[in-house]
C-alpha cells in the first residue's frame, strides 16, 4: 500500500500534470495553427475589446438572457464551477503538499468551508446527472461519454470528502482520491472537459463577430 501511495503521489502525479499542462498547450497550439491554415477569418475579425465584452457577459451570472431564463441552472453551474476550481487550489492539505515538494504556499480555505464546497460540487454533479437522465433536450444529446465525464469530475471530490472524514480507510481513500484527481487532470485536455480552455476562444470569437461586424449584442 505504501509503495502504491508513493507511486501515485510521485511519478503518477508528474505524469498527470505533464499531460494536463502539455495537453492544453498542445491542443491550443494545434487549434491556433489549424485556424491559421483554414479559418483565417477568426484572426481577421478578432477583437480584444468585443471578445472580452462577450466573455464578461457570460462569466457573470444573470448578465445574459439565457442565464436569467434558467435561474436554477445558473446558480447550480456557477456554484459548481467556482467550487470546482477553488477547492483543489485553495485546500490546506493540497497547499501543504506544494509546500513540502516545492516550498511554495498561498492562502487557504478553512477546512470546514472547503468541505461544504466539495459537497456542493458533488451535489451539482447530481443535478447535472438528473438533467441528463430526465430532461428530453439534454437526454437527446447525451452519450455514454457524458456520464463518464461527469463521473471523472465527481470522483476526486467524493473520494476527497471521504478521505478527509477518514471513512472506509484513510490511506485507501487517499490513494483513490489522488488517482481520480490525476485521471481528471489528464482527461481535461483530451475530452469535452476541454471547454475549460477552449470556451474563452469560442466566446471571444463570437463576441468579436457580433461586436465589430454585426454591431449587436451576443448575450
Amino acid at each position: 500500500m505504501h509503495g502504491l501511495y508513493n507511486f501515485v503521489r510521485g511519478p503518477l502525479a508528474w505524469v498527470a500534470f505533464i499531460l494536463f499542462f502539455g495537453g492544453i498547450l498542445y491542443r491550443l497550439i494545434s487549434m491556433l495553427l489549424g485556424a491559421r491554415k483554414k479559418d483565417g477569418v477568426v484572426f481577421d475579425y478578432f477583437s480584444l475589446y468585443y471578445g472580452l465584452r462577450s466573455i464578461f457577459h457570460w462569466i457573470i451570472p444573470f448578465a445574459n438572457r439565457n442565464s436569467r431564463q434558467r435561474p436554477i441552472f445558473t446558480i447550480v453551474t456557477f456554484a459548481f464551477h467556482i467550487c470546482l476550481l477553488a477547492v483543489p487550489i485553495l485546500l490546506l492539505a493540497h497547499i501543504i503538499l506544494w509546500d513540502e515538494s516545492f516550498n511554495i504556499s498561498w492562502w487557504n480555505l478553512p477546512d470546514s468551508i472547503a468541505d461544504i464546497m466539495a459537497i456542493i460540487v458533488v451535489a451539482c454533479c447530481g443535478y447535472f446527472l438528473w438533467r441528463r437522465l430526465t430532461q428530453p433536450e439534454v437526454k437527446f444529446v447525451t452519450f455514454a461519454s457524458d456520464y463518464v465525464i461527469l463521473a471523472i469530475v465527481a470522483a476526486p471530490f467524493i473520494t476527497g470528502f471521504l478521505a478527509y472524514h477518514q471513512w472506509f480507510g484513510y490511506k485507501f481513500m487517499l490513494i483513490l482520491h489522488m488517482l481520480s484527481g490525476e485521471v481528471m487532470l489528464a482527461a481535461i485536455p483530451f475530452t469535452r472537459l476541454g471547454h475549460m480552455f477552449y470556451s474563452p476562444f469560442t466566446r471571444a470569437y463570437m463576441g468579436s463577430e457580433f461586436g465589430s461586424v454585426r454591431h449587436a449584442k451576443d448575450w
Binding site: N66, Q69, R70, T202
Partner: peptide, 23 residues
C-alpha cells in the same frame, strides 16, 4: 479540405448541455 480548427473546436467544446434549445 474546407473546414478546420473552427468546426473541430466547436465540436470538441460542446458539452452537450442543451442550453441552446430555448433559442
Amino acid at each position: 479540405g474546407e473546414t478546420g480548427a473552427r468546426l473541430k473546436t466547436y465540436v470538441d467544446t460542446c458539452i452537450h448541455c442543451g442550453l441552446c434549445s430555448n433559442a
